[in-house]
């Protein structure tokens, strides 16, 4: 009896010694793995990223090549009257739709990630400054944030693209650079608010006070303690920010303002094909469905990350 008990205890001890301490990140990863919708989102985004990176090798045709012998608006192969060389058909300039959709993935991902990176840089800097310095600095910076926050962003994008779209700056990288700047200019305020809130709660925590009292320089406290401890909500916010920008690009390009033709973006393909809807609705539905799937993938991932990183928030 007692022998058995000691053995059991020994086994438990051995097990405990083997298993590593569970931190926030491994815990979060365990929870995320259980969330099927979030995993599906990750898988979709990974595949899309691979397609975008290897677009050159995957696209069966040059997205902007106009073949001399091909017809315009040929339907996808499963419909009658298709041209077998073009799996998803051709557009009104006889360009290969599949190739254009593949290159469109590049635009969508780039337009999602770059502005978020810019907004992170700018927003986190302002947020840390406002939160850490406090007082008058905090007041001035946050009033600025409030005003920009109230600025209706879609209208800003529309006005900026319509005014600057035809300038040399607006034409850089088919209009991508202008979108990056326009998105970052309005987007940083969300990040600044979030980071400031984090800094304010962390600032008075015991471990920060301890670090300060033993004379750790401020810069080091911020890099080693404040930033790592605010990472979780920042990651969640970034994950929700990306689809927001993908949608904004799609909407602007649909209105004829975002990405300049002939560059292919899903939004300007929707615009192009919307006029063909009574002829063959499948054209407009292809880029539209890709936009919707991408939005869903990022939202599922964002929901999953939020639940995984912040267990208190879950019901």
């Amino acid at each position: 009896m007692t022998v058995a008990k000691t053995e059991q205890l020994g086994a438990l001890r051995a097990e405990a010694a083997q298993s590593k301490p569970r931190g926030l990140w491994s815990d979060a990863w365990r929870r995320l793995k259980k969330n099927k919708a979030a995993l599906a989102g990750v898988a979709y985004i990974a595949v899309l990223a691979l397609i975008a990176i290897f677009a050159k090798f995957l696209a069966p045709h040059d997205p902007n090549f106009i073949p001399a012998d091909a017809l315009a608006n040929t339907p996808p192969v499963w419909q009658e009257g298709a041209d077998r060389r073009f799996l998803l058909g051709t557009d009104s300039l006889s360009r290969d739709i599949l190739s254009r959709l593949i290159y469109g993935a590049q635009i969508s991902l780039v337009v999602g990630f770059i502005p978020v990176a810019l907004e992170l840089l700018l927003g986190a800097t302002v947020g840390i400054m406002a939160g850490w310095l406090g007082g008058r600095w905090d007041n001035v910076l946050m009033r600025m944030v409030d005003v920009v926050y109230a600025f209706p962003s879609l209208l800003f994008f529309i006005v900026v693209s319509s005014a600057l779209g035809s300038t040399p700056f607006g034409r850089m990288l088919s209009g991508l650079v202008l979108l990056f700047v326009a998105f970052a200019v309005t987007g940083w305020v969300t990040m600044a608010r979030l980071v400031r809130g984090q800094v304010l709660t962390l600032k008075n925590k015991e471990f920060i006070e301890a670090a300060r009292s033993v004379g750790v320089p401020t810069q080091r406290i911020i890099w080693r303690h404040v930033i790592p401890n605010s990472l979780a909500p920042i990651i969640v916010s970034v994950t929700f920010g990306i689809p927001g920008y993908i949608l904004a690009e799609a909407a602007l390009s649909y209105l004829g303002l975002g990405i300049h033709p002939p560059a292919a973006s899903w939004g300007n393909m929707v615009r192009e094909f919307s006029t063909l809807i009574s002829l063959n609705a499948v054209f407009v539905l292809m880029p539209a469905a890709l936009i919707a799937l991408t939005m869903l993938a990022f939202t599922f991932l964002g929901d999953g990350l939020r639940d995984a990183l912040d267990p208190q928030m879950t019901k």
């Binding site: 689809p243 949608l247 799609a250 909407a251 649909y254 929707v270 919307s274 809807i277 009574s278 609705a281 407009v284 539905l285 539209a288 469905a289 936009i291 919707a292 939005m295 869903l296 939202t299 599922f300 929901d303």
Partner: peptide, 23 residues
């Protein structure tokens, strides 16, 4: 609620237009 809030309204719009308007 998640799908309805996530899928862009103009995408839903084109699907509806294709189905109820064209088909």
């Amino acid at each position: 609620a998640t799908v309805g809030a996530t899928v862009p309204s103009f995408v839903i719009g084109f699907f509806m237009l294709a189905f109820f308007g064209v088909r």
